[in-house]
Design a protein around this nucleic acid. Structure first.
Lengths: 222, 222
DNA sequence: TCAATAGTGTCTTTCAGACACTATGGT
DNA sequence: ACCATAGTGTCTGAAAGACACTATTGA
């Protein structure tokens, strides 16, 4: 830090907003209003506003609110992407975040978002394809060792729904018995009183659960 | 990304350079040449030079070379720290990296670095304390599931040295038998011909090993 | 009673931890 | 012969996977 005669790079925040639609992991995209890549769908992003944002997380919250209407959803920093050529406007830094939202919450709040399966995201502007891939990787990796995947469900859910979401995130089938045993050993959930059966075509009523802690990380793989 | 009338933040790169000294994990600090915090020891860092650096990793390599003389050592991105008040000069972004270097390599190349145990780093400028803590956390967390800790050893090492470094990084004693079994199951190492006993006071000669791959990540905990 | 999912019991295998044991070679 | 470290064998207990089993209730 010896010299400050260098041009400052552009700094933006980009958010990989993930949700579950039809048992598939999907990314929410927004059509760009301005150049470059005007009218192309890309990650939700924006400049940091030095006057209103105290830190990068503030910028994420503001941008999510402004551009999607969402508020109070889970997000965490992924990493930054910084290079001379990722943006045609010049040297730029994107501080990338990934966010998880239950589909119903997304539908209630969101403006006009486009959902695409993460496996076939189509062509994305800038290096958004790479950022998306990094987010999915992170979710898959951390998903097996944390309650992260539960952030894709509503606050209250059944054990089957939880298992199903883990299967989707991790990408493999899990044994029902072992799954319940592990979840129960880890003591992550609490029962919700007034059990009732959800929408499904099941006959037998299902116990409902909620997370004790917003987010838990553990050693053993689910 | 709608508007570009906002002042651009300062963007720097900061490197948490870790090594092992006396069985303790230490961070290498550099005395700052300029304000703010002139003459205070802090992380190795610098501005991105938009003209010479193609990306952030280029900046890391350049800064490491210029400020420490080190070349070709392991580093990876940690995360970014971005806020209005982390730097008295204004809104700033630090893309933080952590790097691992064997002590002999550090001593051979380094200019005037100061080594401090990560457990007692003293008072650091900016939010460098927080960045250091994040780096140590990452190393501890990832260390048990990868060959990362081996980057603190020379290319060729004994099984005992490897075990010892894992113990230091993870922060707990490991059973010798189980350790060797796991390492051998994972098939990470290859024997080096011409076994010889190293410096120690051991009587029996020791087999020497090197890593097959620069870095490996695995599922099971060491 | 049947369909359909909820939820449990138990066997087997795998693996980590503990710990005692053997091996080697300089002094 | 002895010491200090290198390196191995084996027992035990915990947990994972496989899979069959029972439970509940609307239709």
């Amino acid at each position: 830090m010896t010299d400050e005669q260098f041009p400052r790079p552009i700094v933006t925040v980009d958010i990989v907003l993930l949700t579950l639609s039809d048992e598939r992991l999907c990314v929410a995209l927004l059509q760009r209003a301005t150049e470059p890549f005007q009218a192309v769908s890309g990650l939700i992003g924006g400049y940091i506003h030095a006057d209103e944002d105290q830190d990068a997380e503030d910028a994420v919250r503001r941008i999510l609110k402004q551009k999607t209407g969402l508020d109070g959803i889970f997000f965490e920093q992924l990493r930054s992407f910084a290079s001379a050529n990722r943006d045609p406007r010049g040297w730029s830094v994107s501080i990338a975040y990934f966010a998880l939202v239950p589909k119903p919450v997304l539908e209630a709040a969101a403006h006009t978002l486009e959902l695409r399966p993460v496996t076939e995201p189509g062509s994305l502007p800038f290096d958004h394809g790479e950022i998306l891939a990094a987010a999915v990787n992170r979710l898959r990796g951390k998903g097996a060792y944390s309650t992260l995947p539960a952030r894709l469900l509503p606050d209250i859910f059944t054990m089957s729904e939880l298992q199903s979401i883990y299967e989707t995130v991790i990408g493999e089938r899990l044994d029902q018995s072992a799954f319940r045993r592990k979840i129960s050993d880890l003591n992550l959930l609490e029962e919700v009183e007034g059990e009732k059966r959800q929408t499904e075509r099941a006959r037998r009523p299902t116990t409902l659960y909620r997370l004790k802690d917003p987010i838990s990380v553990f050693n053993r793989r689910i």
